[in-house]
Design a protein around this nucleic acid. Sequence first.
RNA 1: GCCCUCGUAGUUCAAUGGAUAGAACUGCGGACUUCUAAGCCGUCAAUGUUGGUUCGAUUCCAACCGAGGGCACCA
Length: 565
Amino acid sequence: MISDQIQKAVQSAVAELGMQAGEVVLEHPGELSRGDYATNVAMALAKKAVVKPKDLAEKIATAIRAQNIPEIAKVEVAGPGFINFYLSQTFLVSEIAKIVSLGGQYGLNKTLAGKTVMLEYTSPNLFKPLHIGNLVGNILGESLSRLLIASGAEVKRINYPSDIGLTVAKGVWGLQKTGGNPKDIKALGEAYRVGNTAYDEAGDEKKEIEVINKALYEYSNPTLTTLRKDGIATSLLHLEMLCKKLGTKFDTQFFESQSALLGRDIVLANITNGIFEKSDGAVIYKGEVDGLHTRVFLNSHGLPTYEAKEVGLFKLKSEAYPNFDISITVTGNEQLDFFRVVFSAIKKVFKEETKGKVLRHVPNGFLTLTTGKMSSRKGNVITGESLIETVQEMVREKVKDRGFDVSTTEIVAESVAIGAIKYSILRQQMGSNIIFDFEKSLSFEGDSGPYLQYTTVRARTVLAKAKIVGLVPSTKNSPKSIGDLERVIYRFPEVLERATHDYAPHLLVTFAVELSATFNAFYANQTIIDGKDPDSLYRLAITSAVASVLEQCLYVLAIPLPEKM
RNA sequence: GCCCUCGUAGUUCAAUGGAUAGAACUGCGGACUUCUAAGCCGUCAAUGUUGGUUCGAUUCCAACCGAGGGCACCA
C-alpha cells in the first residue's frame, strides 16, 4: 500500500538525519488542499533534538524529496511542523486503472490469512419471536464476518439458539392452552405471549410452567417433548428464512440443550482443583482474582446457569474447530461484564485449548425507536420482522410512484428497507446504543442506506448507457488535472484493513458516504457520457471504479443492492 | 455502595493526541431544456463542569454533574 511506502520513506529520511522515528504516524489531512498524507514526526522529534519543529520538518522534507519517489508529487512543510505529501497524478490514475481491472478483488488484504475465526452471533431464543436485539447482533455479526473474510480469514459463522429452558417451557405451556399448531409460526408467537403473561402473574400457571420446564429437560413427557420438537423446527425454519433475507448463512448451530449438561459436568469436574467453589449450595466462580466479580455457574438445584452453558458451549466449539485462532461472541452490551468473568473462567478450565488464542466479546448496542409507532403498547414485543415489515411498507409507497412493475417494486422495497435499517445500525461505533429514527432513516436524503444504494445504482446506470453507445472506460487519456474522486477512492484498501483491525464496520460506512458524496458532486458537475469529448472515457473509468468500490462496501456491510431505484 | 459503557450543533452520528472539530436531518437561501432530483450548491449552529499531563486534548488522567447497563442462583 502507498501508505506503507510513505512510512518507509519518512523513516529512512529520519534515520539519515541520525534519529530514530519509531512508529511513524501517517494521517489524511482533514482537507484535500493540505495534501493526501501528513505526518507529525518532526513535532514529535523536535523536543528531543532541541530544534524548532519547522526547521526539523524542513530537513526531513528535503531528505524525502531527494528520494525521488515517483508516487509523490510534492512534499511540503506546513502549520506547526507537519510534513504534507501530495500524491502524483500518475499514481492516482494508475489506481483507477487498477480498480477497473481488479473489480471486487481491489482492496482485499492478507492480514488474517491462514487464521480461522469462530464468529457467534444472532443466537436467539427459539419459540420466542426474534427480538430487535437479535436483529442488531445479526447485522453487526454478518458485517464483521465479511470484514474478516476480506482480510483473508476463514470464518465459521456460528448460531447458538436456546432450545431449552424457561422460554421454551412458556411456549409449550401456551401451545397446550391455546391449542395452537406448533408448525405455524404465528401460533407459536401467540403461545409464547400467553405463556409469558401467565408466568408473570405468578400464580398456579407459573408452577405449571416450571413443571413443564423440568419435564422438558428430562424428556419425561412424550407429548410435551413432541410439542417442543415441532415448535423448535418451526422456529428454526423461520429463522433461516429471515437470515437469508438479511444475508446470513450459518456454518454451524450449537444448541443450548447440548451445552447445558455438558457445561454442568465440566464445572463439577473443576471444583476440586479450585477453579470453581461451592457457596450457599450453588457453585460459583470468584472473578475477583482477575479484578472481576463473582458469578453463579450452577444454581443450588444443581442446574447450569447461562454461565455454565457458555463453558459447555466453548467445549463444543473448540471440538468442532480445534484449530481456531480467534473466537468471537457478539451479544448485547449489557453482557460486557458477564463475558469478562466467563472468559476468565474458561481460560482456566481450558488452559491448553485457549493457549495462544483470542477470546473476544464484541458488544452490540441496544436499539431504541424514537417514534411512537413501534412502541410496545399492550405488552407487544417489537419483533425484528415487524420492524422490517413496517419499514418495507413505508418504502413500498415511495417506490410505487416510480412506475416499476409489481415484482420489481417488491424487490426494491425490500432491499431499500433492509438497507435503511442496516445502515442506521452500522453507521455508528458498535457497542454504543442505537437510536433508530423512522422518519430520518426513511427520508432517503443523505447519510442513509438508500443514499449509498442510489449512488451505486446511478453509477451503474451510467455505465450501462455508455456500453450501449459503445464507449469503453479507459484511463489512457487522463485530463491535465484530476479532481477529488481519485484522491478519495484509493484509500479504500486502508479503510477496509483498519475496519477489520478495529472490528469497526462504521469506518467503512463513513468512507462509503464520503465517496458517494464526492461522486454525486462529480456527477452533477458535468456530463459523463459524451462521445465527442475524449475525456469522456476517463470519466467512465472513474465511474466504473466508484461503482466497483461502492459495491464492495455494500457487500461487506451486507446491504443489498437493488437493480434500479 | 462498587464496577462497566457513555456525554460533541436543535436532532442523529463522525473525528488512529494534531492544522479552521466533519457529515446528515431540521431551518434559511440557491441552481437545473444533461446520463436516475432518493441528487447538487450555499448558509446558521456544538466538544457537560473544573482541574491536570502535553509543543498540541473531543481524545489521556482526576474530581464533579448527567444518562444507560451490570453486580448470587434469569438469559
